[in-house]
Write a protein that binds this DNA or RNA. Structure first.
Lengths: 122, 122
DNA sequence: TAGGAGCTTGACGTCAGCGTCAAGGTCAAG
DNA sequence: CTTGACCTTGACGCTGACGTCAAGCTCCTA
């Protein structure tokens, strides 16, 4: 059981970010008798994942769609399985698009890098 | 030679976006005698690339780093080849990270999707 | 019992990537 | 010669993911 400051340090984010994630429904927090947020250590890993995803350009709404499959943060029993499955498929498609676009850029950039390298050698 | 409206339509972006790209140094535009921006048709493809990259989460600063290898938009003779090459390498690394992170998420999401699908079948 | 570190909830600030007026110039068509 | 489509340069507005105060409570320590 950790408080917000410790989780923030361990996960490499700010306390403000943690409150924001909670506000967006990405993480949950128990409360101590004094009102302080309390987290279990699993949350650190979840928060790392979330921060990583946000950092590479996904929105918090994106992340929310499948955050419960990243860790034990949001158990949320799969009630509406069919809708959830459809959502997952859509998100998979979007991810594939993103990956493809980035891979394409990577390829072109690598080619140009090679070209430049050869110019420098020759 | 096309004007801004036509380029915008062809590339599927707004004229405002085109002015913004120019402001950021991502594209160049000649000027007609009346002050109107003039583009050659190659610009359409370049703009499509730029928009695509921005859309998947790269910053305009990111895009600026290698926009000249996407088309003929910014010829910019490779003067400082060494620095350019280093920049390219860095960007390649960043792209690899992004691709890896997305691929990882994709994998986990796919696994969860499978699990859900089986629950629905059984 | 007085600090100081850490926590709380607002609430306003920031930055990117445009959207959206506002006010006005240009030009082919009627 | 006027309308209307298209262009120009500001300049303010918006959204997301926080940063950064402000004002006040909690707890351990000296």
């Amino acid at each position: 059981m950790m408080r917000i400051g410790e989780v923030a340090r361990c996960a490499g984010v700010s306390t403000r970010a943690l409150r924001y994630y909670e506000e967006q429904g990405l993480i949950n927090a128990e409360r101590d008798h004094n009102g302080y947020r309390i987290y279990d250590s699993d949350t650190v890993l979840l928060v790392r994942d979330i921060a990583r995803l946000l950092h590479i350009g996904l929105s918090s709404e994106d992340v929310l769609q499948f955050v419960h499959c990243l860790g034990k943060g949001n158990p949320e029993p799969p009630k509406d399985c069919v809708a959830l499955l459809r959502t997952f498929s859509e998100r998979l498609g979007a991810l594939d698009e993103r990956i493809a676009a980035l891979t394409d850029v990577r390829k072109r950039l690598a080619a140009e890098t090679d070209r430049l390298a050869k110019v420098l050698e020759g």
